[in-house]
């Protein structure tokens, strides 16, 4: 008869919990945010979340979700309310889902004509991406002028896994849509792009090679704390040229040499993007007003990146430290 006692206790506990539940306070202002999967984006997210939580009285649920088209669809569907710091040249869904121009300091930096399922506002961070080699490699090989010379030195870049080809420590996450291998193939660089899965894995691999003073080619972006400790040189990819046919709908028809993806990334005016229905509701008016006004500076993010990447602070601590040290953010509040 122990089981029936158990069942009764269980029922009693459930009932009593529901009693307490009904008395509990409800969180009216509750938002769900996707935390970005790279340190810079995480910082931008934490800045936004700390404003919402500490200044505007929201409760924000943070969800870990890989960035990419899937995240855009989750936002459009209303599963996630907002996400931070999307880089337009990485996002492929922005063309499809945004339909309002993107402003930076009052000027239009990008026009959109999509469905309008998602809305976006600039964060203030301006990003740049490239492929880099360590400076000691360039110093030791004066013949190396830029990406055209990579094939000449490919033996030095080869690893066990890539065999006779050179190795590019490529974009770590597939969802970022870097098209590394495609770029290498079109440009005729006999290298293999290795996708390590996370930003940290990419950094660990690169840092290890740097510490051993081996030649290596890596993908990276600015602002990033890796440049603080290690001297890196860009390989001068051709300047960005868009290619309209390079989309999934067109089965990734490329435009040949010199056009995306066989070119450098564009200068990225990064944006926070959100679900219009949720954000335009009356109770989230303050949050929307904040996102419209938010203007986070590269310099500030770079400082926090160093605190996180080199000094071992958590993202929360670094952001709190910055927030306590300055009043710049007061201007973003509605």
């Amino acid at each position: 008869m122990k089981t029936s006692l158990f069942l009764k206790t269980f029922t009693a506990l459930i009932l009593s919990s529901f009693l307490v539940l009904s008395a509990g306070t409800a969180h009216a202002k509750r938002l769900t945010a996707a935390v970005a999967d790279w340190t810079g984006g995480e910082i931008t997210c934490q800045v936004a979340v700390s404003m919402l939580e500490q200044e505007l009285g929201y409760r924000v649920d943070r969800i870990e979700f890989a960035s990419g088209t899937g995240l855009w669809e989750a936002i459009a569907a209303g599963d996630i309310d907002f996400a931070c710091e999307s880089w337009p040249s990485y996002a492929e869904a922005d063309e499809v889902m945004l339909n309002e121009p993107l402003y930076y300091e009052g000027e239009v930096v990008q026009e959109y004509s999509g469905s309008g399922e998602v809305i976006a506002f600039t964060t203030g961070i301006i990003g740049a991406s490239d492929y880099y080699v360590p400076k000691y490699f360039v110093d030791a090989n004066p013949d190396f002028k830029g990406w055209e010379d990579l094939n000449k030195f490919k033996d030095q870049f080869a690893t066990v896994e890539t065999g006779s080809k050179g190795r590019l420590i490529g974009c770590p996450v597939a969802g970022w849509n870097c098209h590394d291998q495609k770029r290498l193939d079109i440009m005729g660089i006999d290298f293999e792009a290795v996708e390590l899965g996370t930003e940290v894995a990419l950094l660990a691999e690169a840092q290890g090679s740097y510490d051993r003073q081996e030649p290596f080619l890596m993908y990276l972006w600015e602002p990033h704390f890796f440049f603080g400790k290690n001297e890196m040189v860009g390989i001068g990819l051709p300047p960005h040229q868009p290619c309209d046919s390079f989309t999934e709908a067109n089965n990734w028809q490329d435009c040949g040499m010199g056009s995306w993806p066989a070119s450098n990334w564009a200068k990225d005016y990064t944006m926070n993007y959100m679900n219009p229905e949720t954000m335009q509701s009356a109770e989230n008016a303050e949050a929307l007003a904040f996102f419209k006004k938010m203007k986070f500076a590269n310099v500030d993010q770079a400082k926090m990146l160093v605190r996180v990447g080199d000094d071992g602070l958590s993202v929360e601590e670094a952001v709190q430290e910055w927030k306590d040290s300055t009043n710049d953010w007061q201007a973003w509040l509605p």
Partner: peptide, 10 residues
């Protein structure tokens, strides 16, 4: 990896 890429690209 295909599963991952598929999910990330929706």
């Amino acid at each position: 990896l295909e599963v991952f890429n598929g999910l990330a690209r929706s």
